[in-house]
Computed example of a mutant assay.
Amino acid sequence: MSGNTGAVPFLDLVDINADLQTDLEVAWKAVLQHGRFVGGPEVERFETQFAAYCESRSCVGVANGTDAIELILTALGIGGGDEVIVPANTFVATAEAVRAAGARPVFVDVRPDTLLMDPAAAAAAVNRRTAAIIGVHLFGQMVAVPALSSLADRCGLAFIEDAAQAHGARYGGQPAGSVGRAAAFSFYPGKNLGALGDGGAVVTSDVELADRVRRLANHGRAAHDRHRHELPGRNSRLDSIQAAALSLKLPRLDSDNARRRELMRRYRESLPVSFEPVAVDPAAEHVHHLAVVRTLRREQAGAALSAADVGWGVHYPVPCHLQPAFAGCDERLPIAEEAATQILSLPISPTLDDGDVVRVCDALRGV
């Protein structure tokens, strides 16, 4: 716990990593001594640990979460002429990766309660060009897995998980990373499981797919001949020091997530009635990467929080289909568009204490 009496930061990465400083220094010295900064033994160790944590067979460490999505699509042969269904309410990286793979993102609306992909909207968007559905486990909550995976099965589509914000989340008892053809994770420093820089992973129980992703991410090299390049690949690999840091942090992920759930419970008990937390699906075990509420007075709320020295954010103020990068989308997606004007992200981190939640809620009472 931080026990701070000063500002309530939106996210304090120094505090999050403070109690691991000695262990991180030991890990760094080990990497310095063996000199395998890329592809060292730390990478294979973390891949094995994280695959087991996700109850999946394979994990391939890559450079970041965006690359992870693109590599999955490319490994599945999805590209030019194909369409991929994505929710409008997500970080732009989801759609960005689809475009980078050569496919066309098709944006669909979200559920009004959880703000996650609406399975009915996804079903309505399927056509002969559709190749995949990317279910984004946003804010720390998994999508409605049974509906979306069964839709994908019926239509012969790949169901892919964007699990960048859902390390340790579950739906119906199944962990993120185990319910799709493959899952993309990000280890950006602010994630529930965050590295000390960029990092990502592809997790899948399809061993052949994992092998293809690994080769694509390593310049298309053959498995047993580094001078033979069998695929038109790229350079997207997880560094040894990042893998070492992730291995140190993984054992405490579940307890950190439990603390996040406790903090969110306190928010629900203490927030003024004009601030409504985004709903949790009864079948979901949320890990609250973000504490998102809806309010009709976001501008005033932001001003009140700033005046009280409380950090806050908006995730995300412009839905993907309205971003200039994806101009040409004529669809109106009213639920995502309305939510984008109302959502507000409050501080939530395992380093916050109960008094921090009280201070945040007190700052909002006059709004």
Score class of each variant (00 low, 15 high):
1 M>D: 11
1 M>E: 12
4 N>H: 11
5 T>F: 02
6 G>C: 06
12 D>F: 11
20 L>N: 13
22 T>W: 06
23 D>Y: 00
30 A>L: 06
30 A>R: 13
31 V>K: 00
34 H>E: 13
35 G>E: 01
36 R>L: 14
39 G>Q: 01
40 G>W: 05
40 G>D: 02
41 P>R: 02
41 P>A: 07
48 T>V: 09
58 S>Y: 00
59 C>H: 00
63 A>S: 15
67 D>A: 13
69 I>F: 03
69 I>S: 03
69 I>E: 08
70 E>G: 14
85 I>G: 08
86 V>K: 07
86 V>Y: 03
89 N>T: 12
92 V>C: 05
94 T>A: 15
99 R>W: 09
103 A>H: 12
104 R>E: 14
105 P>L: 01
106 V>R: 14
108 V>T: 13
109 D>P: 02
112 P>H: 08
116 L>E: 03
117 M>F: 07
120 A>S: 11
124 A>E: 14
124 A>L: 11
127 N>G: 14
131 A>R: 15
131 A>I: 02
131 A>V: 07
133 I>S: 09
133 I>L: 15
134 I>H: 11
137 H>V: 00
139 F>D: 00
142 M>W: 07
150 S>Y: 01
151 L>I: 09
155 C>L: 04
157 L>C: 05
159 F>R: 04
161 E>Q: 12
163 A>Y: 00
165 Q>L: 15
167 H>Q: 15
174 Q>E: 14
175 P>V: 13
177 G>V: 01
187 F>A: 02
187 F>R: 01
191 K>L: 02
192 N>G: 06
197 G>V: 01
198 D>S: 14
201 A>G: 10
204 T>C: 11
205 S>C: 04
207 V>T: 14
209 L>I: 05
212 R>P: 01
213 V>M: 04
217 A>R: 03
220 G>I: 08
221 R>L: 07
231 L>I: 05
233 G>E: 09
234 R>L: 13
243 A>R: 00
245 A>E: 00
246 L>W: 04
250 L>K: 02
251 P>C: 07
252 R>I: 06
254 D>A: 15
257 N>V: 07
260 R>W: 03
265 R>C: 01
265 R>K: 10
266 R>E: 14
268 R>I: 09
270 S>H: 12
270 S>Y: 00
274 S>E: 15
276 E>K: 14
277 P>D: 12
279 A>C: 02
282 P>T: 10
293 V>Y: 08
295 T>Q: 09
301 A>V: 06
301 A>Q: 10
304 A>R: 07
304 A>V: 09
309 D>G: 08
310 V>K: 07
315 H>S: 11
315 H>T: 10
329 C>R: 12
330 D>H: 12
331 E>F: 05
332 R>W: 06
332 R>D: 12
333 L>D: 06
337 E>R: 08
337 E>I: 06
340 A>K: 06
341 T>S: 13
343 I>D: 07
344 L>E: 10
344 L>V: 01
347 P>V: 11
351 T>S: 13
358 V>D: 15
